[in-house]
Design a protein around this nucleic acid. Structure first.
Lengths: 235, 235
DNA sequence: TTCGTTTGTAGAACAGTGTTCGTAAACGAA
DNA sequence: TTCGTTTACGAACACTGTTCTACAAACGAA
């Protein structure tokens, strides 16, 4: 506090002014930690520590841990480009938004996990839902299928992103005891007697290193929206 | 121990034999608690308490909390009926399995939450995946799309079930401060300036009380599988 | 039957978690 | 300058999953 320093007239304290807390600063710190240390690396205490304060101080600006996660997601989802709805290209536009969301999750590991945990009550951010809904409606999709589809797509993207993050954690060494490792082991030594079909198709399950799998999901969802939407409108 | 009672010859101790711990007993206790008190109502300590022991004792039979969750899911997913694959009716059979999984989640609240958390590394149980894969392959779906589709369907069913559980918790009173309540409030007072499309379609988003929404999702996924699968095979 | 050795049982403790309470300091209006 | 409200924060509460360690029971060999 400069005022106090002036008052005392000596020993300009080395600690900088220490700007006051704010929701924005808390969200930024949490986002940074999520990006660097993953979702489990973030706690109210660690965020408080980064801001050089105690955990109780956060609760003035943030009502909850869930609330904080939601604010972080809100912030990060602002980075997704939302094109102006164009009825001619609505399917490609939906793909564009979905890819944008995936890119954001990838660039900020940890947020994918938060999104998956919140997706049933949050749908991956109001802003992106708004943008998607506008595109779908412009494309002629009826309101109810369009709304439900937004849910579905948000869930799908978050799940794919989270799965990717887990696999990357495994590859980043030291994951000898990770969750993914256990799954991989379980797949390697599948009891062929009990699960013959699965054992015979392990390769197909594990396949899809790159974006093929994600794009396949987009194909399924969009193709299904067209056919199911048509049936819904007709029946 | 009856032997000791005979040895002492008096005071047949009132505590029953207290059968030894086992993985099965632990899983059953955990499942029961998940059904009655929801996912957050279960902890290693609460399970241990129900078995009249301390938490450390569980770790002999169960390596992990995640492990326990997975065992619980394995157990509960055994209840799902898996029909003999029939190429003529494969789509209806997929629907049947999906409905069976949803019914199981509904009958055991708390397991849906566990499944959603584990679904990226677990796919909703090896047994159901095996059954689904067999049906799809019999139906003529290529291996890779079939395998990926199993992932997708497992994710979808778990998410729908979890969402339903949250809404039921809200209706079961005392949920004044629940997560869903906050979402509902947020939807009620949507800033129409920032989210005009969303505000105009709140009804459509909230719609789908019964199974309509779930069945719509099935329509989308199955319809999309057919069209995308065709494209995948062709291109 | 006695003696190790293995196995299952738990109490206590560790290192964390989210959250609340009460108090102390800072700030803007009167 | 005083008052009232807002912000800050150390301490503490009630938990969590997990590990350490001592202890007792069970079992196979002598």
């Amino acid at each position: 506090m400069p005022r106090r320093a002036r008052r005392l007239g000596l020993e300009p304290d080395p600690t900088p002014p220490k700007q006051p807390l704010s929701t924005q600063r808390i969200v930024s710190a949490a986002l940074e930690q999520m990006r660097d240390k993953g979702y489990e690396g973030v706690s109210m205490r660690s965020v408080a520590r980064a801001l050089d304060t105690g955990p109780a101080s956060l609760y003035v600006h943030v009502s909850n841990r869930d609330d904080l996660d939601q604010l972080v997601l809100d912030q990060v989802m602002r980075l997704v480009d939302l094109p102006e709805p164009d009825a001619e290209r609505w399917q490609e536009q939906v793909r564009h938004v979905a890819r944008g969301m995936l890119a954001v999750y990838r660039a900020h590991p940890g947020t994918a996990r938060a999104a998956l945990a919140l997706v049933p009550v949050y749908e991956g951010g109001l802003r992106t839902t708004e943008g998607l809904l506008a595109i779908l409606l412009q494309g002629g999709v009826p309101a109810r299928p369009a709304a439900w589809f937004c849910d579905l797509l948000g869930l799908y993207v978050a799940a794919v992103a989270y799965e990717e993050v887990l696999w990357e954690q495994r590859e980043d060494g030291e994951g000898e005891e990770s969750v993914v490792r256990r799954v991989a082991d379980a797949f390697d030594q599948l009891p062929a007697g009990r699960y013959p079909v699965l054992a015979a198709n392990v390769a197909a399950m594990a396949a899809g290193e790159g974006d093929d799998r994600f794009e396949f999901g987009l194909d399924v969802l969009l193709g299904g929206l067209v056919t199911a939407g048509a049936r819904h409108a007709a029946g």
